[in-house]
Nucleic acid binder design. Structure first.
Lengths: 155, 155
DNA sequence: CAAATCTCTACTAAGTCAATAGTTATTTTG
DNA sequence: CAAAATAACTATTGACTTAGTAGAGATTTG
């Protein structure tokens, strides 16, 4: 049920871009993202390239180059990011909306496990589609202000 | 975010054992489970053996041998099964209760992603800890009675 | 004892993960 | 216009995981 490191890095990188987002076309260098989030630079390169192909970010080459969000952070929700990097949000593909696959069970329509997995899927998707990069940036801002032990109260 | 095939097979096998569960010490043969759930027999063998080491099932050898649940189906919830086969239910280990691991982010206590992942974890765990094998068996029974298109109404 | 069944260990082919490396292309600066 | 800085692209790799398959051994029942 776990996200890959790749997916986690993608979220953290995009969070940096969201926090630094401006309406002009300013970009953030990979090196900067790598440093602030403690992500191996060359690996991050690949991930950002991948996010570019998903039209989530755009890049600027050359000496003053870097990456920026292609849309405003309010318009990018976590579901879209995770789906592109990891594939289905659903625990089993037979309940996935975007990546449906038939499973090997004898009667999918009457599978009790499937019905529980669908509930689970819905719970996950509800959260991931509700939270945007802007929300994440806002949460980050608030967490940085509060002195400590913050997390336990947020949840 | 997906369950492995192994995990899915485990759930389906245990559902069979739950449906056939009796208070006496009657067992179900691997072959029978394999046939009813369309699971490769030799692979299922391994999985059931694994579930035995988790004290979820017990086995009887010999010609009238097979497997049975070690506890009543009401007392086995899905979380326990999935945790044993797959590991953490949480999308990232830094929010896992049972399999906690520190992540590479600069400040875990103030990580905005972590706070969303914790919500997600809680949503998943709430479902998986509430639903038992007995519930699953009951759902299966009801789904078999209803004529068709049943799944969409259950959810 | 024979047959059916579980047990245990080992093996494997394919795929995925998390990088690493090398080369090419582009842009800005001097 | 050339050099330097930076990103883009392509390929490779080593370790690990996944989903099985295989074979020999142990146990129980008829």
């Amino acid at each position: 049920m776990k996200l890959s490191v790749r997916g986690e890095y993608a979220l953290r990188a995009l969070l940096v871009l969201a926090r630094d987002f401006q309406e002009d076309d300013s970009v953030v260098r990979i090196q900067e993202i790598s440093r602030r989030q403690n992500i191996p630079k060359r690996f991050l390169e690949q991930i950002l390239n991948d996010l570019k192909s998903a039209h989530l970010v755009e890049s600027k080459r050359g000496v003053a180059g870097g990456y920026r969000l292609r849309r405003r952070p309010e318009r990018i929700h976590l579901a879209e990011i995770v789906r592109h990097i990891e594939g289905p949000l659903a625990p089993v593909s037979c309940v996935s909306e975007k990546y449906y696959e038939k499973c090997s069970c004898p009667d999918e329509a009457r599978c009790a496990i499937r019905s529980v997995m669908k509930e689970t899927r819905d719970a996950i998707v509800t959260i991931m589609e509700r939270v945007t990069l802007a929300d994440l940036a806002e949460r980050a801002r608030k967490l940085e202000q509060s002195p400590a032990v913050a997390l336990d109260f947020v949840i």
